[in-house]
């Protein structure tokens, strides 16, 4: 679904570049876990900069890094882990040194009412429980792997998703009994999803880097958005959503 959204985005922005170049579009590729916070920050940025149109492509950080590497028209990249940002940096894709702007940690997410009676990571080894996890190449999956290693649990997922929001959706719909998602995702889902903490959560902390990209169509605007995310207002929005300070 995100691929389709990207295709539409490519078509739209592709058409835009053939114009005068004076349009105010700012394209931000951001980790799926930033969907709610960045959407709010984007609206703020548009309000403060009349004529600027902020367009987001939310997805798994690994997919976004791959798309940027293939030449997708992005001005700013915000990843959920340094590894995926490093991929873009190594390819010479960034215009400035990435900076860490937030941190996040995993929580067990279960549907409201916790029908399967999940209590901790050990339940993820239960073959009868329906489990959804992030794929290992996306940051939430890498963090989940660290958690299971620390807990000595061999997880038995029923589905492995490409970004954290896809995992969260499976919990919201009640199609799985448990999943590992970010604390911020549990909060964003409201009453449909209940979060359960676990002792190994300290091992799952991910640091989020952001950087303006080398191929940004308006370098100053891309830098301004990065500054906006790091501003007091940006920190407040992120903290309210449950992100930790970097």
């Amino acid at each position: 679904m995100r691929a389709l959204a990207l295709a539409a985005l490519l078509v739209v922005t592709g058409c835009g570049t053939s114009g005068t170049g004076g349009d105010g579009r700012l394209t931000v590729f951001a980790a799926a876990s930033l969907t709610e916070t960045f959407t709010r920050l984007g609206a703020d940025f548009e309000a403060a900069n009349p004529g600027v149109d902020v367009v987001f492509n939310f997805g798994g950080s690994s997919a976004l890094a791959q798309q940027i590497g293939q030449g997708a028209p992005a001005d700013v990249f915000a990843s959920a882990a340094p590894a995926n940002m490093a991929q873009v940096v190594d390819a010479g894709g960034t215009a400035a040194e990435p900076v860490t702007f937030a941190a996040n940690r995993l929580e067990i997410a279960v549907p409201a009412g916790n029908p399967a009676g999940i209590t901790g990571l050990a339940d993820f080894a239960d073959a009868d429980a329906k489990i959804a996890l992030c794929a290992e190449q996306v940051p939430c999956g890498a963090a989940a792997k660290r958690a299971f290693e620390a807990a000595g649990v061999t997880a038995r997922p029923d589905t492995v998703e490409q970004d954290v929001k896809a995992v969260l959706t499976k919990v919201r719909l009640g199609e799985v009994d448990a999943a590992l998602v970010y604390r911020t995702d549990v909060r964003a889902a409201g009453g449909e999803v209940v979060g359960i903490g676990f002792p190994e959560a300290d091992r799952t902390v991910n640091h989020y880097p952001i950087a303006p990209l080398a191929k940004a169509r308006d370098a100053a605007r891309a830098r301004a958005f990065v500054d906006h995310v790091r501003s007091d207002r940006g920190r407040a929005v992120l903290a309210e959503a449950g992100f930790d300070a970097p």
Binding site: A3, T159, V160
Partner: peptide
């Protein structure tokens, strides 16, 4: 969904 050996068919494997 997607799980190797259970639901990961060729087109899914290509995409992933």
């Amino acid at each position: 969904g997607n799980f190797p050996g259970e639901t990961t068919t060729m087109p899914l494997a290509v995409y992933l």
